[in-house]
Design a protein around this nucleic acid. Structure first.
Lengths: 149, 149
DNA sequence: TCCTTCTGGTTGCATAATGAAACCAGTTGT
DNA sequence: ACAACTGGTTTCATTATGCAACCAGAAGGA
């Protein structure tokens, strides 16, 4: 069993998320899926991780219903891994990782892959957190309320 | 050395981010820091992880300049861990983890801690990704362009 | 001052996860 | 029919994790 449950704060959504996708490879696999990769061998080639590890990770991701196994074409014995709605829900997270990396791990003029709006080819804006009334919120403008119970 | 560099895609900001904070505990430590925790013993008590592991993680996070060690008060021998600007930059990511967890790992009426706007005590809105012109963007509205080089 | 507790670790050792390479059965292409 | 590809599993060595014990310096109390 790879997933250790961090029971101490099982009531925290952050902890539950990390229990599902908080390991070294899962989010990179999901990122590749957003880039259109679907097959076992594609992930393996692109990430360069051992096949047994990939096998384990994909199985867990399927168990968590982040990926779904669907036949490549009707009648084919081969299957491909496609993101479910839940998996697609990870999009903001991947974008968040990307934007933080861009901001802090690249030198000024250093080239990196870029996420652009498909319609106009323009770079996307930074993710923003807003209040119910639309005000932009930073880390200090929020508080975490413990679960009522 | 805990950090293995995933050289295959070192040009990808997502990979660089995960190299820094992609392990089991780092983001939970950062989450706790956003909740106001600062001292070694506070993190240890709240997360329930072994002290040697916490020690290693905090050292790495300081090396990565996500935390900064500052004296508890002037002249004190004790120090506390406070988030740098770079560390504060992880806020959208933590929020993303939280919102995804809320959406997919909690039953309908299940209680969980909640992130609210400090001014009005209202729950914050879901993170949104927008195009340069302000259009809301989903996973299928974006493309990743490889680094030009 | 002496004694005790708290803090922030380190060290050793057992256990669990990771990774490289070899191997393999079923499928597809020629 | 044959060769190559796909999607794995197995074995084994290496590495990380976690628990418990230990420890030095600081703070607090009598």
């Amino acid at each position: 069993m790879v997933q250790r449950t961090r029971l101490q704060d099982a009531e925290c959504p952050v902890a539950r998320s990390l229990d599902a996708i908080g390991d070294w490879w899962s989010l990179l696999i999901v990122r590749d899926a957003f880039d259109g990769l679907k097959r076992f061998s594609e992930f393996q080639r692109n990430l360069g991780l051992a096949k047994n590890i990939l096998s384990t990770r994909l199985r867990q991701l399927v168990e968590h219903q982040i990926f779904e196994l669907v036949p490549v074409s009707e009648g084919s014995a081969y299957q491909e891994y496609v993101l479910t709605e839940k998996g697609l829900g990870l999009f903001p997270l991947i974008v968040g990782l990307r934007q933080w990396g861009e901001a802090f791990y690249f030198a000024a003029g250093e080239a990196h892959s870029q996420l652009v709006d498909r319609q106009h080819g323009q770079p996307v804006k930074a993710l923003e957190l807003r209040a119910a009334d639309g005000r932009l919120l930073g880390p200090h403008d929020c508080v975490r309320l413990p679960a009522r119970g």
